[in-house]
């Protein structure tokens, strides 16, 4: 998937030969590991109890909560490519709370909370996910998804500000 070679570089618009490109090249190891984690969090070989489509749709919500339009579009593309059903695609709708599906409702509630206000998360929030049927491994997968996307969006936001320097 060519567009995924370096999501941050594409979104920030790092121009080859620019000063920013030279600075970022000094941390090429980190940028490559960031892209590899993106692929592992969004499109893992063994997705467990969280499908690629659900991951892309939840990432879309995280981008919206962060007011990060370019990331929203990126994750929408992943969602389209995942062949998601209409019900799964609806997860990306920020006004959808999961409706009558208790598992979806718990996933959405947790992702929104941890993306926006991780400081408010408590033991009870993990218990709610368990009560909705999530296994321990899927709890960790979900946590890594929201935590990683929150990181990736901030790296891009910082680089974009750096790009704006005279």
């Amino acid at each position: 998937m060519a567009e995924n070679n370096d999501v941050i570089a594409a979104i920030v618009g790092i121009e080859p030969g620019s000063e920013l490109a030279a600075v970022v090249a000094g941390r090429a190891d980190i940028m490559a590991l960031t892209q590899q984690t993106h692929d592992a969090a969004l499109m893992p070989a063994e997705p467990g109890g969280l499908s690629h489509a659900e991951r892309a749709a939840l990432a879309c919500r995280i981008a919206k909560i962060n007011d990060a339009k370019d990331f929203e579009e990126h994750f929408e593309t992943l969602l389209d490519n995942s062949g998601a059903s209409g019900d799964t695609a609806r997860i990306a709708d920020i006004w959808f709370d999961g409706g009558g599906d208790s598992r979806l409702k718990a996933l959405i509630r947790h992702v929104d909370l941890v993306a926006h206000a991780p400081k408010d998360a408590t033991r009870r929030d993990i218990e709610l996910l368990r009560e909705a049927g999530l296994a321990d491994a899927d709890l960790v997968r979900l946590s890594e998804l929201v935590a990683f996307v929150s990181y990736q969006i901030r790296v891009a936001a910082g680089l974009r500000l750096m790009r704006g320097l005279a």
């Binding site: 000063e19 920013l20 600075v23 970022v24 000094g26 941390r27 980190i30 941890v114 991780p118 400081k119 998360a121 929030d125 993990i126 709890l139 960790v140 946590s143 890594e144 929201v146 935590a147 990683f148 929150s150 990181y151 990736q152 901030r154 790296v155 910082g158 680089l159 750096m162 320097l165």
Partner: peptide, 25 residues
């Protein structure tokens, strides 16, 4: 310097990731 700013962006963002694991799990 620009290289220092990049490292600051990375360490601050990295803890947006780490905090969301450590504090929620």
């Amino acid at each position: 310097g620009r290289d220092e700013i990049l490292d600051l962006i990375l360490s601050s963002s990295l803890f947006g990731w780490a905090n969301r694991l450590m504090h929620t799990l």
